[in-house]
Design a protein around this nucleic acid. Sequence first.
DNA 1: AACCCGGGGGA
DNA 2: TCCCCAGGGTT
Length: 359
Amino acid sequence: MPEKSAQLKLFFTQKLMEWNQKFNKREMPWKKEKDPYKIWISEIILQQTRVEQGLDYYNRFIDQFPDVKKLAQAKEFSVFKLWEGLGYYSRCKNLISTAKFINEELNGVFPNAYEKILALKGVGPYTAAAIASFAYNLPYAVVDGNVTRVLSRFFSINIAVDTTEGKKIFNELAQSLLKKDQANIYNQAIMDFGATICKPRSPICTNCLLANNCQSFLDNTMNSFPVKSKHTSQKERWLYYLVAEYNDRFYIRKRAQKDIWQNLHEFLVIEMNSPKTTEEVLKSKQFKERIASGYNIISVSKPYQQKLTHQLINGVFIHLKLKDPVVFEDFVLKSKSQIKRIAFPRIIFGYVTENNFLS
DNA sequence: AACCCGGGGGA
DNA sequence: TCCCCAGGGTT
């Protein structure tokens, strides 16, 4: 990357701060928040998650767990229930782990040094810089999707942002642009600017204070930035859920395998490598391994589908009443009132909700 | 360095 | 449909 002129960098920082002071109307509950606990919660929720999507989760989370001690002492399944539907569930796992660590090892006091914050589980460079600057006004520049987009456009940097080299370049550039005595305001400003003006698509360049020195605007190449190296490939999967009922209870387990939806729950399930009819599922070896005794078919659901970034999940739910209990791996019988309290993936939640299972 | 991990909304 | 979102962890 050619060295950016000091003058251009100064222009960037000054105009960004000016835009923030004069025109930034974005409001969010964690803005101006100084409690590191609440900032931490908001930042974890917002990892790879739109503000609008995370907002209700944040409010419910703070309402139910207003401080780190409350979170540390909560039942794990109830925290996951609050996270249900938000995705990236390892965030929730790490959140619980870190809450316990702070409560038990740090006397409930949130660390106030960047390196200590960075060392927390689930906290990487972005989140550590966000907490350090927002809670303590420490001079660490945040680098998130907004920042790489804004900087790659303004300086016309065509290094892929998702490579080791790209991360180094953008981290160093972001740090050099930071208004160090107002790190909290600057960091909030650049993300708000990216989210509302320098948007991924249809950036509002005609009304941008920085446009007259924005290299990609001058070249009319805004839509070519940021450059990314990865392209996503999607894999299709076919899941046949056996909603196996015995004495008004259902066989459920917590997912623990190396796969999506770890720590969420599921019914007995048979995965096929291609679409199958109900008859084929019932005749399959996998089915007979699980259900050896008699059963009645209560219903077969419509096909459900869930789109993930890298997977397309097809699901069919076959509701069975068993004549005898079965023993299979770590599945256990759970009542409807128990099922209400535990977290499921969206596709199962959708089926359970639409079919009034819990009423 | 490559890969994995959710779900949803905008264009 | 495709892209991307206040990224981080594991292999």
